[in-house]
Amino acid sequence: MRNVLPVLTVLLVIVGIWYAAAIWMNSAWTIDRADGPLTFSEIVSDTMSQDRPRLPAPHQVWAEFQKTVFDTKVTSKRSLVFHGWITLSSTLAGFALGTVTGILMAVGIVYSRPVSMSLMPWAIISQTIPIVALAPMIIVVLASLGVDGRAVPKAIISAYLCYFPVLVGMVKGLKSPDAMQLDLMKTWSATGWQSFWRLRFPSSVPYLFTSLKVGIAAALVGTIVGELPTGAVRGLGARILIGDQFGNPMMIWSALIAAAVLAGVLVTVVSVMQTVAMKRMGFAR
């Protein structure tokens, strides 16, 4: 309960600001259409129920959200659960791919100076290129390689955003054992393999989980971005784009809310895994 109260307070403030902004942004249209002068309460009630508001009020978004999440069959193309699942599966694939890539690159960077010198600058540069610009190219290149469908390119775009925090965290984590602990391994004349699995990797686990929390959020953003400029018709990103093209703000906003809920759930799941792992490994007491 202690944790819920601050969250609810912030939520309440956001909803309050949202309503105020909806009145303000939608009132111009209300006044334009009016035959004569309007009272304040007439303006307010009209701004709450426009069909195509500039900014839909929270209850309008909620109604759309409810309709497309709970009242629509999940197999239907109108169901946000359906689109959410498309996005989720790509996100998880991208997350897995990105995490493995990040870890492998970190191992290379920690163990080999040439790899570190040649790979690290490119890893940083890779993150300065806007993913929106890169996404269509990835799809075109993959299509010309004969990869059908959107799942693979989306997962790659997602992994592209997600590998970097994992890489940075793991480099730090794998380097975290101090000189004494490495010397100790040497006094036992342990092999590099043994030092890695018994010392470096377990030492890096706290860093890994912190990175995974950032990584999974980045993977979701990557997937949605991968759905935006590519003419996709399925997934939360596609819903946002279609809502925009057809002038349906409720559709955009409910897809955004769905994406936010999904992000929250994913980060929470990783957090719980982190807490359990930290406890079991004796890092937390």
Partner: peptide, 16 residues
């Protein structure tokens, strides 16, 4: 493996 070495800090692994 002719010797055992003890450092100033115990350096035990927290996860073991």
């Amino acid at each position: 493996r002719a010797y055992g070495y003890v450092f100033q800090a115990a350096g035990l692994y927290p996860w073991r």
